[in-house]
Design a protein around this nucleic acid. Sequence first.
DNA 1: TATTGTTATACTCTATAACTATA
DNA 2: TATAGTTATAGAGTATAACAATA
Lengths: 164, 164
Amino acid sequence: MQIDGEDRLSIDDVRGRAPKMSDGPLDYGLLNDRTGFAIKLAWILGYSLLQKVFGDSGITPLRASMLELIATNPGAQQTQLANALGLSRPAATLAIDFWEARDCVERRIAPDDRRSFGIFLTAAGHERVTELRALIKQADDALVADLTAEELAELRRLLAKIHR
Amino acid sequence: MQIDGEDRLSIDDVRGRAPKMSDGPLDYGLLNDRTGFAIKLAWILGYSLLQKVFGDSGITPLRASMLELIATNPGAQQTQLANALGLSRPAATLAIDFWEARDCVERRIAPDDRRSFGIFLTAAGHERVTELRALIKQADDALVADLTAEELAELRRLLAKIHR
DNA sequence: TATTGTTATACTCTATAACTATA
DNA sequence: TATAGTTATAGAGTATAACAATA
């Protein structure tokens, strides 16, 4: 699961997972000129980089996001976590089950409302989050490695104009 | 399937489909500062806009991309189409089946190699592609409506530095 | 009667493997 | 023996609906 320091992660490691608009036998036509298609290609590469750093650990981008969210919001309810990640409640249950089975989170019955849980990181969970943050940073850095600091800031600003 | 001229499509119509990093009870922590997460949010919105313009027609972004690709590359083999969209051959078969069932494409046995087909648009397919292109353009325009022309060009340039 | 979370179920998407027919 | 395409099958992921406990 750890990436060796000597072979740095590169976006070139996952280029093959996304089709390339430029060099292929086929012409993408209108798709060539659609921002949505460019975003999709970038997303595939980012997702592939995450899959690569997570390896065969069973961790997925979604599960990692869930753990990060729990770490940042100790005691959050499952419904809140589901909403924050755009998930149904059953899907959130499963993601939390995954981490609970690995002793990384625990469900504590809320003292004021015994229908709901507050979700908290365990000691092992804190360690795991630290590792995961490093891996996520590696993948994200590899994704934008070809951009200067100024370009990256501008890309983030422009993306935020879309999703904010 | 046609969007009425009087109610213009807006990204605000699908905002609810992607979680918002800014206004919610939870803090996204590290995710807040990851380009990959911003790309994912933008991708969800773009995908949702496409779903909205396609309505309940059964057309999906993937199927629309397939038809566009066939229109731009008449006579392409299924394997080429699959590769260009990052699909397995069975998945490409299904997407082409969808359009064939709607009389929009036809498989013509290649005269030189009778194992393979060339895929071609029918007359109905040409009409459908024209409609679809207008819908895709609507969705894409709505996605980037908040950007100036200069900002859009810069966004496309920066995304291309990632996916190219 | 409404809400939190779980379980049961079904659906969509996709891939791998096995098959047919050509080469 | 290899390749193009199809069919069969299975897995992952997700959602909706039904359910239990609590409010």
